[in-house]
Design a binder for these strands. Structure first.
Lengths: 218, 218
DNA sequence: TTACAAACATGAGTGCGCTCATTTATTATT
DNA sequence: AATAATAAATGAGCGCACTCATGTTTGTAA
C-alpha cells in the first residue's frame, strides 16, 4: 500500500515536473530559433510565447527577464570548453601559451552566435545594483569552476617547468585578461576576428616570456 | 549695410544657439539631480523633461536615448584626469607603477557616482550592433586621446630608465588592463573598494617587475 | 468520490522609452 | 513690414518588457 501510494505520488508529481520541463524546453527552443532568425533585439517576448504555444505571462514564470532567457545560451559554454580540453590529449602536450590560446579561442567560438546580445547579458553580470541576486550567486559558482579549470591548466605547466609557480592569483589574473580579450573581441570588426587572435597570441607569448625571464615570486 | 545685416544675423542666430544651449543644460541639470536623488533606473525621461520644463519629446531631440544622456556625465572624465595629472608635478617624479596606480584610482573616483548605470552605458560602447555610429566615432576619438595620454606617461618612464621601451602597444595593453580593473571594480563589494585597489597595486608592481627583469623586445 | 490546497497558466493591463505628424518660434528674403 | 523657409518644441500615441488578479490544473487528505 505504501509503495503503491508512493508510486502514484511519484507518477503524479512527475507529471508537473515533466510539464515544466517541456514548457521550458519549448520556450528555449522557440527563443533560439527566433534569435537566430531575427536577432535578439528584433524578437519580442510575445513572439517567443506564441511560437512556444504559451501565454505571454507564462514566459516570465520561467525567466525573470528577456536577458535572463538569453543567458541560458551561455550556460553550458564553460562545461563544453572544459570537456573539449580534457578530450584533446594532443593539446595537453603543447606549451602553456598555445594551450591558453586554444582555450580562449574555444570560448570565443562558443560566444560567436551570441555576439549581438552578449553585451546585454554581460551587463547583468556587471551591474552592481542588479536585483538578480540568484544570478549573482550562480555567476560566482561559474567563476569558481572557471578559475579551478584555469588553475589546473597552469598547474600542469608549472610542474612541467614551462612556467614558474603562479598560484591561484595567476589563474585570477588570467581571468581578468580573458575578460579584456572578450571586450576587444566584441569591438573587433576585422575578418574572422583575426585582430583579436593576433593580440591574444602576442599577449600570451609576452606573458609567458615574462614569467620565464622575470619569475613570479618577487 | 553689409555689416549691419551680418550683425543682425549673428544676433538672431545666436538666439537659437543660446536657446539650444540653455535647454541642453536644463536637461542635464535636471537629469543629474534626479539620478542622484532617485537613481538612474528609477528616474523616468518624463520626470526629467518635467523638471527641465520641456515637453517629453524634446528630450529626444537632444539625446538619442536615456543611456546617451547618462553618457554625458563621463564626457569630461578623461580631460579631468589628464588635467589633474599635468598639474600634479609631484606625482611625475614617482615611479611609473605609482603613477599608473594614481591615474586609474583617479578614473575610478570620477566613475564612482555613476556606478549604478555605468554598465548600461558601457554596454552601448561594447554592443557591436549598436545603431549609434556617431557614438562609436566619438568613442574612438576618446580612446585615441586616452592612448596618447598613457603613451606620454609611459614614454617618460622609458626615458628615465624606469622601464624598457614598451612602445604604442604598451599603452594599448595597459588600456586593456584598465578595462579589466573597471569590471573588477564594478563587482567589488568591499569597503572603499579596497580589494580592487589591492589588486591594482599588485598587478602594477608585478607588471613593472616583469618589464625590468624580462625586458620587452623579445 | 469529494473537498481542499498548492502550483501553474492566463492575458488584459501598466508604465516605460521612444516616435512622428503637427504646431510654434526663429531666421532669411522681398 | 510681410512673407516664405527652416529649425525646434510639442504631446498624443506606439510597441515593448513586464505585472498581477483571476482562472485552471494537478496533487493531497478525508
Amino acid at each position: 500500500m505504501k509503495t503503491k501510494r508512493d508510486a502514484g505520488k511519484t507518477r503524479q508529481q512527475g507529471k508537473r515536473v515533466k510539464n515544466k520541463e517541456n514548457t521550458k524546453r519549448a520556450i528555449l527552443r522557440a527563443a533560439l530559433e527566433l534569435f537566430a532568425e531575427k536577432g535578439f533585439y528584433n524578437t519580442t517576448t510575445k513572439a517567443i510565447s506564441r511560437k512556444a504555444g504559451i501565454a505571454e505571462g507564462t514566459l516570465f514564470n520561467y525567466f525573470e527577464t528577456k536577458e535572463d532567457l538569453a543567458l541560458y545560451f551561455f550556460e553550458d559554454e564553460l562545461d563544453g570548453v572544459i570537456e573539449w580540453y580534457d578530450r584533446n590529449t594532443r593539446l595537453k602536450r603543447a606549451t602553456v601559451s598555445e594551450q591558453l590560446f586554444a582555450i580562449i579561442q574555444q570560448f570565443l567560438d562558443h560566444l560567436a552566435p551570441c555576439e549581438e546580445f552578449i553585451g546585454a547579458v554581460y551587463l547583468r553580470a556587471l551591474a552592481p545594483a542588479s536585483k538578480l541576486s540568484p544570478w549573482s550567486l550562480q555567476s560566482q559558482e561559474r567563476q569558481l569552476r572557471y578559475l579551478q579549470f584555469i588553475r589546473r591548466v597552469l598547474a600542469q605547466a608549472e610542474t612541467s617547468g614551462d612556467i614558474p609557480r603562479v598560484g591561484d592569483f595567476g589563474a585570477y589574473a588570467f581571468g581578468l585578461f580573458h575578460l579584456a580579450i572578450v571586450t576587444h573581441w566584441l569591438r573587433d570588426r576585422s575578418r574572422g576576428k583575426e585582430q583579436t587572435l593576433a593580440l591574444l597570441d602576442r599577449c600570451l607569448k609576452l606573458g609567458t616570456h615574462f614569467l620565464r625571464k622575470g619569475g613570479w615570486d618577487w
